[in-house]
Design a protein around this nucleic acid. Structure first.
Lengths: 196, 196
DNA sequence: CGATTGACCGACCGATCGTGCTACTGTCGC
DNA sequence: GCGACAGTAGCACGATCGGTCGGTCAATCG
């Protein structure tokens, strides 16, 4: 990996962290440059525009999410173990402030009615996320673990809601009980699709 | 109501709308002044600082939420009808982009680890929201409609998640099916606390 | 060895940010 | 009819925004 590429990666690592805390709009070139130890212009040369920087940051966050949440889940046996691993990893990622998931959560409200490439990327990644969950459910149905009439998209949306509620409540209220409630909600949602 | 007060109210109405779309941080004095038809300084005189403006905007959004969602629900009979009205009003409020609810959803990620009066207000209002839901559940338990061992806080967090997932998915993906799924999730959550 | 190139910096641009200060305008009590 | 005062505008400020430009330094290559 050349010097440029490694610098770029280091910058993106910092960028994801900032974006997770301050939001994608709050990710400013000046502050990012300072945090990354580069000059504004030096950093800017790597991306060319703010939009490109935002896109790259979202992409980096996505990669981290895939590596730290999705892939470990896919390494588990299909059905409930896979789904549970996915949920568990996603949950602790949110709790511990892993930039990946949080970037999306912070970014979505900012861009949800502000057309552009960033919004398109967020929407596309979000769809992928929900699809991934749906496919895990589908696999569980094929395995006979889940009811044949279970609705994968329904479960995906419910799971997303469980994590979202946990994220907001935990981040804002700092109440550890929210984590327990999230797990309980997950178990309940799973119960409803489990084969009798 | 004096001229000042009515102008202030009109400004806040516009402010909530902008904050719901662009976020509280994206609510800029310049753009707000232009949208409201005042000069920057003329508008600024009403609030004195940006933080005060944000606080007032959050407060206004809260008032609207109370009037348009909470109070209509409280006018219903306790237990399920009340809870259902609350959920239904909340849902369509999010769908139709009523500024009230959206301001909170947009604002939370921006302020969740940025200490200050705005964050405190958001956290306090969020707690109130969850408490209100919890009390509705409690009332249903007292009525015998819900199981005695139902956990109000658990239900509150789950309901919050259902609406959050709907909000994000609908706003970002524009998929009408998300609304049906939200209703189905609500029914399922209700089933789990209903007295046998 | 000199020429080229990729990575980076300092200085700077116009625009906009939040925020003061001052002055005008209308309304109302006397 | 006049002073008081609330409401609003004009204007300017320092800071910061995204972005540009010319240039430096080290490594690479012929």
């Amino acid at each position: 990996m050349g010097k440029g590429a490694s610098t770029r990666l280091a910058v993106l690592e910092v960028a994801t962290e900032i974006a997770a805390r301050r939001g994608l709009a709050g990710l400013t070139i000046g502050t990012l440059a300072e945090s990354a130890g580069l000059s504004k212009s030096g950093l800017f040369a790597h991306f060319g525009s703010k939009e490109e920087l935002q896109l790259a940051t979202v992409g980096h966050a996505r990669d981290r999410f895939v590596n730290e949440v999705l892939l470990p889940a896919l390494a588990q046996p299909r059905g409930e173990p896979r789904l549970r691993t996915f949920f568990e990893r996603w949950l602790v990622a949110c709790r511990d402030g892993m930039p990946a998931g949080c970037v999306y959560l912070s970014a979505k409200p900012e861009f949800d009615d502000q057309p552009g490439r960033v919004r398109d990327q967020l929407a596309s990644d979000y769809r992928d996320l929900l699809d991934s969950i749906g496919q895990m459910v589908q696999a569980g149905i094929a395995e006979g673990q889940f009811r044949a009439d279970a609705d994968p998209a329904q479960f995906a949306q419910e799971l997303d809601g469980i994590v979202l509620a946990f994220f907001f409540a935990y981040r804002l209220l700092r109440d550890p009980a929210t984590e327990t409630r999230a797990r309980r909600a997950f178990d309940a949602a799973l119960d409803r699709i489990r084969a009798t």
